[in-house]
Design a binder for these strands. Structure first.
Lengths: 248, 248
DNA sequence: CGTCAACTGGACTATATTGTCCATATATAC
DNA sequence: GTATATATGGACAATATAGTCCAGTTGACG
C-alpha cells in the first residue's frame, strides 16, 4: 500500500485488473450489439414454437440414437455432451436447439429406450399363452445378453439404477415402463390361467413381478460377474415358480 | 506480422505471451527450489512408505465414512471430492494424502461397504438353519429398506450397477462380495439340507443365487417404484422356491 | 425465385471439479 | 526435549464439461 516498487505480485494484479476491465468493456459492447439486432416486432413472450421440419426431426433422432448408444455403454453420467455431439455428427448448438439441457436429453434417452424395449417385448410376449412360450422368452433374453457377456446390463434397469435418485421425472417414466413390461407378462400369464394352463389361484401380476425381479437381479449379477450364469439361474427359479402353478 | 499498429488482438496476444513466459519462469524456479530442498541422502525410488499413525488412520476412516454415506445417497458420480471434504471435516490435501485420486477413494468406499454388508449379513445368516430363519432374514431386509421407502437401493447393488462398466477393479471386488454373500446363504441352506430340512436334491448354491437375484431385482424395482411391495413379492417368490425343496 | 423462419457450425464463456503445492502444525521416536 | 517424519489447511492451477452466442446456410412456402 503506497509502495512504488514494482513486484511480480503488483504487476500480476495490475494486469488482472486491466484484463478484467477489458473483459467488461467487450461484454458491454456485445450486449449492446445483441440488443440492437433484436427485431422489435417480435413479441418477447412467444414460446419457441418448435415445429420440426423433416431435416430437424432427422437430426434430433440422430442425437437421441447416439445418446442412447453411448449412455448404454458408458453410463449416463460418464457420457458427455461432446461425446454425443461427435457420435451424432452434429454440433453443440444443435443439441441445445433440440434439448434445453442435458437432463432433457437424458429424458429423451429414457423414453426412447423404454419404447425400444417395450416394442421388442410386445413382439415377444403378445402371443404368450403356454409355458413353452415363457421358456422361449427366457432364452431370447439370455441369448441377447450373452452376446455381450452380460456387460451393460438391462437397457432399462441400468437407467433406473442410475437415475432413480437423481431425476424424479425419469424415475417415474421408468417405473411406468416396468409396469407396462410386467403388464405384458401378466397378460400372457392371465391367458394361460384363463385357458386352464395355470391353476385359478395363480396371480398373474405377482408372477409377473417375480419374473421381472428375477430378470433384473439376474442382469445385475451377470453384469457384475461378467458371466450370464446367475441370470440363467435366476430366470429358471422364476420359471420354476410359475411352473408350480401349472395344472396337472 | 510486421505490422506496428497496436490492436486489441495484438495486445491480448502479447499479454498472453508475457503471462505464459512468466508462468514458465515461475515454474522453473519452483522446480529448482523443490530440488534443492530434497535431501540427497533419501533414495529416489523409495515408495511413499505409508505407515499410518493413529491420527492419520482416524482421518482416513472419517473420509471413507463420509464418502460411503454421500455416495449411497447421491451416487458415486454425483459425489464430488469437495462434498467429501466438507462432510468429513478435512481438506483437499488430506484426501490426496490418503488416496492418490478419486478412483482409489471410490475403491475404498466399495471395500468399506462390502465389509459392512457382509458383517451385517454374517450376523443374520451364520446361524441360519431353518425356513423360519430365512423368513426372518427376508423380513429384516424388507424392514430396513422400508425405512427409506426403497430409496437408494442395495448398498452393494447400486455400486455394482454404477461401477461395473467403469472400473474393472471395483467390479471384481463387488463380484467377490456377492459370491461371499451368496456363500453365507448357501452355507445356511446346506446346513438345512444336511439336517434333513431340505431334500437332498436341493442345490444350495443355485438357491442362494436365486435368492440374491430376487433380492437385487426387488431392490431395483422398489427403488424405481418408490414402493417396497415388488421387493416383498420377489423375495416371497424366492422363498417359495426354497420351500418347494422342503421335506415332507 | 425470393424471403424468412428454422437449422447449422463452431468459437466462446462460465462453472464445476479434479488435482497440486507449500508453509505450518502435530505427533512420534530417540 | 529435540529432531524428524508425517499430517494438515487452504490457496492455487489445470482441466473437463455444461451452456451461450451469433454469423452464415439451408430449405419450405408463397
Amino acid at each position: 500500500m503506497g509502495g512504488h516498487v514494482l513486484t511480480a505480485e503488483n504487476l500480476i494484479t495490475v494486469l488482472r485488473q486491466v484484463v478484467a476491465e477489458w473483459d467488461r468493456a467487450v461484454h458491454t459492447a456485445t450486449v449492446i450489439k445483441q440488443g440492437s439486432l433484436r427485431t422489435v416486432s417480435r413479441p418477447e413472450n412467444t414460446q419457441p414454437a418448435r415445429r420440426l421440419t423433416p431435416r430437424g426431426a432427422a437430426t434430433r433422432a440422430r442425437i437421441v440414437a447416439a445418446a442412447v448408444e453411448l449412455t448404454y455403454v458408458k453410463g449416463v453420467n460418464a457420457t458427455t455432451l461432446d461425446d454425443v455431439r461427435a457420435a451424432s455428427n452434429t454440433s453443440k448448438s444443435q443439441l441445445y436447439n433440440h434439448f434445453p439441457d442435458k437432463e432433457e436429453l437424458v429424458r429423451a434417452v429414457v423414453a426412447e429406450r423404454a419404447a425400444q424395449v417395450l416394442e421388442r417385448e410386445r413382439g415377444n410376449l403378445q402371443r404368450l399363452k403356454s409355458f413353452r412360450g415363457l421358456v422361449r422368452w427366457r432364452d431370447a433374453l439370455v441369448q441377447r445378453n450373452a452376446l455381450q457377456n452380460g456387460a451393460y446390463g438391462c437397457a432399462l434397469g441400468s437407467l433406473a439404477s442410475e437415475l432413480a435418485d437423481q431425476d424424479d421425472q425419469a424415475r417415474a417414466t421408468l417405473a411406468e415402463s416396468f409396469v407396462e413390461w410386467e403388464g405384458l407378462l401378466a397378460a400372457g400369464l392371465r391367458r394361460m390361467r384363463d385357458s386352464g394352463v395355470l391353476r385359478p389361484d395363480a396371480d398373474p401380476e405377482k408372477l409377473a413381478t417375480g419374473l421381472m425381479a428375477a430378470l433384473q437381479g439376474g442382469y445385475l449379477l451377470a453384469e457384475t460377474a461378467h458371466d450370464i450364469k446367475p441370470m440363467e439361474i435366476a430366470l429358471d427359479m422364476a420359471l420354476d415358480h410359475v411352473k408350480s402353478f401349472l395344472t396337472a
